[in-house]
Design a protein around this nucleic acid. Structure first.
Lengths: 127, 127, 127, 127
DNA sequence: GTGGTCTAGACCACA
DNA sequence: GTGGTCTAGACCACG
């Protein structure tokens, strides 16, 4: 589980962490019982205040997505009924919407949008 | 052009206005040259401070979506795509990247991404 | 980075701050990564409202001259020229046009314009 | 005497008119005794409120640059001691400064600036 | 009538 | 500590 943070984004850092954990769960990248990286490891890797990571983990705990065993670590919860296929689909649609609205304001045609997506897909595959 | 604000949303009021104008432009509900409701009309109708509306309009102006004629009002910009080809391409690639990163975290396949884009393209065309 | 404000000027306070930051950057007085004084420090030193300073900083951010890290502060941007070649060229041409229109109205010859540009280039280099 | 107005500029329309008359005087394009276009002609040509033109002419009169004969028209004043060579030089230097600061923030080199100026000079000559 | 600027002060979110 | 948002209300400039 690796995090990818943009400190200048208008989305707060803690929310970026929350979203990425949720996505990883929805995608099946992490499963019930898996361990999240420790507060210290995450905060030093991201060069971010430990309190910020803590806040993210606490919110995930409040949402029932992770459980914390004091002194042992933070784990993905066993009961994840509320995430899953519908969450994934909605999140993906929302992301596609954001692209389209932005593209519209740039005056891009449907084909230009498709082309851009294909180009980036190819680029990511290469990485 | 009527606005619909949710004061309890975590999205700031000014950002909701910005988003709604963008969507109205993208959906063809308003067109180049159309007048936006005046600051005062909008602020009294939404029961928010004129400064808040002004902030939204100024951001729209900064993005080139509206122009304001001092003393006359605020209008949808005539030249929505006069940005320079390279700038447009870069901005479009960036927007596509954001979609792909989000999709990657959701574990979506290339085909799922394509499908989501096509669905939203079709939906926008229908509006 | 110290600001020097003239409240009686017709130029708004926030625009004076913007101009002074730009000049400081152009003159090499501040460099990429440098911290701007905090909103509160600047506002108390200048005896102006924090919102006024904030407005200036946000405009600088919109122009890509500074970036702000929420909760940490406002910094001179590292990538002052990452705009795309065509965008840069167009913006430069536009700026040159503004000079020529002004010069035209003043009845200046091509050589007078060249001379003025060279004089100012030399002056900036000396700073 | 033809005016060239940008209604979206942050410089007010009346100030643009004032500046252009001053520049025309400084450049020797108009001379003492010459007639300014009538309020009506100017306002209809520029598609601007007559009050705006009137305000510009009144300011020019207050500065002693024009005199108004009621019912006959507005004329360039006979005594123009305060405008002239120094005004021209200062205005030109200021305009050159604006170009250089802007160019700096675009990351342009001295040669790029010179090139842009030469290009636009050539373009204007062709018009 | 329009939008622009500023103040004083509150409250919140983030790190 | 940092910046972000909003209010209520004033005053000004422009058309």
């Amino acid at each position: 589980m690796i995090f990818d943070i943009d400190t200048t984004s208008s989305l707060p850092i803690y929310a970026q962490i929350v979203a990425q954990v949720k996505h990883a769960v929805a995608a099946g990248i992490v499963r019930a019982g898996d361990t999240l990286p420790s507060l210290r490891e995450t905060s030093s890797r991201l060069r971010v205040n430990p309190l910020t990571v803590s806040k993210a983990y606490r919110q995930l705990e409040a949402e029932g997505i992770v459980v914390t065993d004091h002194g042992r670590g933070t784990f993905i919860s066993a009961k994840l009924a509320d995430l899953g296929e519908e969450y994934r689909r909605k999140a993906l649609d929302k992301a596609a919407d954001r692209l389209l609205v932005e593209a519209y304001h740039l005056g891009a045609s449907a084909d230009e949008i498709r082309l851009a997506v294909e180009n980036r897909l190819r680029k990511m595959r290469d990485v």
